[in-house]
Design a protein around this nucleic acid. Structure first.
Lengths: 119, 119
DNA sequence: AAAAAATGCAACCATTTGGTTGCCTTTGTC
DNA sequence: GACAAAGGCAACCAAATGGTTGCATTTTTT
């Protein structure tokens, strides 16, 4: 039985584009990035509160929040007559991992290239 | 003169949405994510080569490459009658940092909340 | 009960996006 | 020189996106 390869020397796993793409798409808008950081730093906030921080209409904010929610980046809790939105860290971690995987693939390719040149 | 605050205890810096958003937007498409990983793992490739790996037309691939180039994620070199595209790691690193900053903000907010509850 | 606040729903609009096709130009190759 | 390969340019199209406005609904507050 051949010895197990040491960790980190094989080709890195490919990320699954069909899962990460929607998250990146959701992050790919200035207003939504702003909403994320606002919720992240300021805790749960209502639509009205969030709207107060922007130049756009409440309805526009609502739509952006829906996009973020569908990407799993935020979730909402209804409380009384208002709806509080909060950041959900899961998918952002997933996105981080995706970028890490791409970076690792790149490093791996560079290393291979270097070896090929030297050897 | 007051002693300098120890590293990592202050509120993290906000990311600049206007710089990171276009990069995330460029990453927010399955085909483009695929192109990135293809270039990342397979080195410089021509439009024809890249098109061969997809179901869409050469022109569509060209358009996607242009989007990626405008986000600074790839660059091209003309050689003879073909144009070779290669991955450019800079903006992806920037995107990674952006996500790190958001995650750090979140951690900071959680810590603060925890302290408030305990104290 | 009436008024105000917070939100939902729906229609509408302009622009962008992701894709196509057809044809022209440039560059190798036989 | 003729032909094939690789790519550029431009027009076109349908659908998605980001925004608006108007009005209805649900909860509070007074």
């Amino acid at each position: 039985m051949p010895r197990r390869r040491a960790r980190g020397t094989g080709a890195p796993q490919r990320p699954a584009p069909e899962v990460s793409a929607p998250v990146f798409a959701a992050l790919g808008d200035e207003t939504r990035l702003w909403l994320i950081t606002a919720l992240c730093a300021g805790g749960s906030q209502s639509i009205a509160q969030l709207t107060a921080g922007t130049q756009i209409s409440r309805q526009a904010v609502t739509k952006h929040l829906r996009v973020l929610a569908e990407a799993g980046l935020v979730r909402d809790v209804k409380v009384g007559r208002e709806r509080l939105w909060e950041f959900a860290p899961g998918q952002l971690e997933e996105a981080r991992r995706s970028l890490d995987v791409i970076a690792a693939q790149w490093d791996y390719a560079l290393t291979r290239l270097k070896r090929a040149v030297e050897g």
